[in-house]
């Protein structure tokens, strides 16, 4: 029976059906006390095979849907599992407290860290409370305030990115959303403490990079990282909003693309069927990656760390620098095909 559950994506329906069958048999087992474990195991194997098959053929648009999945674990879900303890801290000390951006201090094993990240809401009420994960200037300024605390007390910063975009409403504009994002990138580029950013779900444009100038940027397998949502881009560039699937492919927004383009350092494999099928396992993978990178970063003298961070972002972009070649005037452009990365 096809599921009508709105939290199930179309391509997940065969999986949901098998899940439902398994759940039914388990219920019967409990009610009737008959051992049907072999049947259950067989169905679970079928289901896992179905997942593997479906997930080996995902389109970029399918990844968009997974990144926005209504059951996808959000920042605070990760925070609760990754950290042994945490205290959320509020407010930007300038205007207010933005519920779309959370942050605080936390314990990660022996370490003390600062975390910040966008927070989405689960149900309609919470979604509105969290402004759909779209932070205003106050959110970015809260994040910066907490990052400065980290710098002052020599604690590393972990940022969690999950936002469709920064808020662009009238009051966000009035309080300087552009300035807030720009300032964060500038300050993060010289912050004298290690920074790790994790792209959890939607890495939406300026809203994402406003907290993602880091020594290590890691990205969940089914997350997306994009300069503009594919729907908006199709509407603007192709004047055809219906071509969002083609645009999702053209924009190269998947984790594999980001890795290949040199924008992220590592992609974290998600549990079978996506992070929402096993948030605990997903978070523990993120935790392991964070600890691994911190171990490396903590050994680097802070000035070297900041210089390396500069070089990292400085080298992003792909173009050709003809002045670096031996002078060879009047070579037709078609013959100059060699791609060069920007110099570090």
């Amino acid at each position: 029976m096809p599921s009508k559950d709105w939290t199930v994506l179309d391509f997940e329906k065969p999986i949901a059906e098998l899940d439902e069958q398994i759940a039914q048999i388990k219920r019967l087992t409990q009610e009737q006390g008959i051992d049907r474990s072999e049947e259950i195991a067989a169905l679970e194997r079928d289901r896992d095979r179905a997942i593997e098959e479906i997930f080996s053929n995902l389109t970029p648009w399918d990844r968009v849907l997974l990144a926005r999945h209504p059951k996808r674990p959000y920042t605070l879900d990760y925070v609760r599992i990754i950290f042994d303890d945490y205290v959320e801290l509020h407010g930007d000390r300038l205007y207010g407290d933005d519920h779309a951006m959370v942050g605080g201090i936390a314990r990660l094993g022996d370490r003390h860290v600062v975390f910040v990240g966008q927070q989405k809401g689960r149900d309609l009420k919470e979604r509105q409370y969290r402004n759909f994960g779209m932070a205003k200037p106050d959110g970015y300024r809260k994040a910066l305030r907490l990052m400065k605390l980290a710098e002052k007390f020599k604690r590393p910063v972990i940022t969690f990115v999950d936002t469709p975009a920064a808020d662009c409403s009238v009051d966000a504009e009035a309080r300087g959303i552009s300035e807030a994002i720009a300032r964060n990138m500038m300050e993060m580029s010289v912050l004298e403490t290690p920074i790790i950013s994790v792209i959890l779900g939607e890495g939406g444009s300026g809203g994402a990079i406003g907290i993602a100038v880091a020594d290590r940027v890691i990205m969940m397998e089914n997350a997306i990282y994009s300069v503009i949502p594919p729907e908006g881009c199709a509407a603007i560039l192709w004047r055809d909003p219906s071509k969002y699937k083609e645009m999702a492919a053209a924009l190269r927004i998947t984790s594999a693309d980001a890795l290949e383009l040199g924008v992220v350092d590592e992609v974290i494999k998600e549990p079978l069927g996506g992070a929402h099928r096993n948030p605990e396992a997903a978070a523990l993978s993120v935790k392991a990656a964070i600890v691994k990178h911190l171990e490396t970063l903590e050994k680097i003298p802070v000035q070297k760390l900041v210089d390396a961070r500069y070089k990292k972002f400085r080298s992003m972009g792909i173009f050709e620098d003809t002045s670096k070649k031996k002078p060879q005037k009047k070579v037709p452009a078609e013959q100059q095909e060699q791609e060069e990365q920007g110099e570090a």
């Binding site: 500038m186 300050e187 580029s189 993602a212 300069v227 924008v263 961070r309 400085r314 972009g317």
Partner: peptide
């Protein structure tokens, strides 16, 4: 704004330019 045809690489130019301003300012 950022050039859509270069996708995520254009987004990274925001960080790159902001970082260059930071060093000049410092």
């Amino acid at each position: 704004g950022a050039r859509m045809q270069e996708g995520i690489l254009s987004l990274m130019q925001m960080a790159k330019t902001a970082a260059a301003v930071a060093r000049h300012s410092k």
